Simulated scan of single mutants.
Amino acid sequence: MKNNIAHDERIAHLTFASVYPHYLAKVEKKGRTKEELQQVIAWLTGFDDKMLEEQITNKVTFETFFQNAVLNPNAELIKGVICGYRVEDIENPLTQKVRYLDKIIDELAKGKKMEKIMRSTQ
């Protein structure tokens, strides 16, 4: 993904709370649960349920959300296309992290097994 400063800025200033209901609706529509959604978010970010709820309640931006997160070391194993871009080719670190999140939520909604989504290396 080529540098697109306006796009990256827009993503940085979006609040996680404004997008979370869409994530939840997407996975529930496909028969997955809120608990599964929170499990994959926890895998990527290190947030437990309480910490995730605080991010939502405080209406943090994606920039703050990922500053507060401890990204899973296996996140770099997330590959593929989301929103028309290959996540591994995205140059802006924050935009890439947001797209990692989008990608694993998309995989959850598509019925992929949790072990695959969470890039188990066992």
Results as ranks from 00 to 15, higher is better:
Glu115Gly: 11
Asn3Pro: 00
Tyr100Thr: 08
Asp89Val: 07
Lys110Gln: 15
Thr15Asp: 01
Ile105Phe: 01
Glu28Arg: 07
Leu77His: 12
Met1Asn: 10
Thr45Asn: 04
Thr15Lys: 09
Asp106Tyr: 09
Asp106Gly: 11
Asn74Asp: 15
Thr15Arg: 06
Arg119His: 15
Gln96Ile: 06
Asp8Met: 07
Gln122His: 15
Ile105Ala: 01
Ile11Tyr: 05
Pro21Glu: 06
Leu94Ala: 06
Ile41Tyr: 01
Lys97Met: 15
Ile117Met: 08
Thr61Met: 01
Thr95Glu: 13
Lys50His: 11
Trp43Leu: 10
Ser18His: 10
Leu108Phe: 01
Thr57Ala: 13
Lys116Leu: 14
Cys83Tyr: 10
Phe65Gln: 05
Lys59Asp: 08
Pro93Asp: 07
Gly111Ile: 03
Asn68Lys: 12
Leu101Gly: 01
Tyr100Asp: 07
Glu36Lys: 04
Phe47Asp: 03
Glu115His: 13
Leu37Arg: 00
Val70Phe: 04
Met51Asn: 11
Thr33Gln: 04
Met118Ala: 12
Lys113Met: 12
Glu91Val: 12
Ala25Gly: 11
His13Lys: 07
Leu108Gly: 04
Thr121Asp: 15
Asp106Ala: 13
Thr95Met: 06
Met114Trp: 02
Ile56Arg: 09
Ala109Gln: 02
Lys116Ser: 14
Ile117Lys: 06
Ala6Val: 13
Gly84Gln: 00
Thr61Tyr: 02
Val19Thr: 11
Lys110Cys: 09
Ile56Gly: 01
Thr64Ile: 11
Val81Leu: 09
Thr45Ala: 04
Thr33Asp: 04
Ala109Leu: 00
Met118Gln: 15
Asp48Trp: 02
Ile41Asp: 04
Phe62Tyr: 06
Thr57Trp: 10
Phe47Pro: 00
Trp43Gln: 04
Glu76Arg: 15
Val70Ile: 12
Asn4Tyr: 09
Lys34Cys: 07
Thr95Ser: 14
Asn92Gly: 05
Glu76His: 14
Lys29Leu: 08
Pro73Arg: 13
Asn72Met: 10
Asn3Thr: 13
Ile78Thr: 07
Ala75Tyr: 03
Glu53Ile: 11
Ala42Thr: 09
Leu52His: 02
Met1Arg: 11
Leu44Cys: 02
Lys97Ile: 07
Leu37Pro: 00
Pro93Glu: 09
Phe62Glu: 02
Trp43Arg: 07
Arg86His: 12
Met114Ile: 15
Ile11Trp: 05
Leu101Gln: 03
Lys34Glu: 13
Gln55His: 07
Lys103Ile: 08
Leu77Asn: 15
Glu36Ala: 11
Leu37Met: 00
Lys110Ser: 12
Leu52Asn: 07
Val60Met: 08
Leu77Ile: 09
Ile56Asp: 03
Gly31Ile: 04
Thr57Lys: 14
His13Asp: 09
Met118His: 02
Thr45Phe: 07
Cys83Gly: 03
Glu36Leu: 06
Ile56Met: 09
Arg32Asp: 05
Phe62Trp: 00
Glu76Gln: 14
Val27Glu: 03
Gly84Lys: 01
Phe62Ser: 05
Leu108Arg: 02
Val81Lys: 12
Asp8Thr: 06
Glu107Cys: 10
Glu36Thr: 05
Val19Gln: 09
Tyr85Thr: 09
Glu63Ile: 01
Ala6Asn: 13
Leu24Cys: 00
Ser18Glu: 08
Lys113Gln: 14
Lys29Ser: 09
Glu76Pro: 00
Met118Asp: 08
Glu54Trp: 12
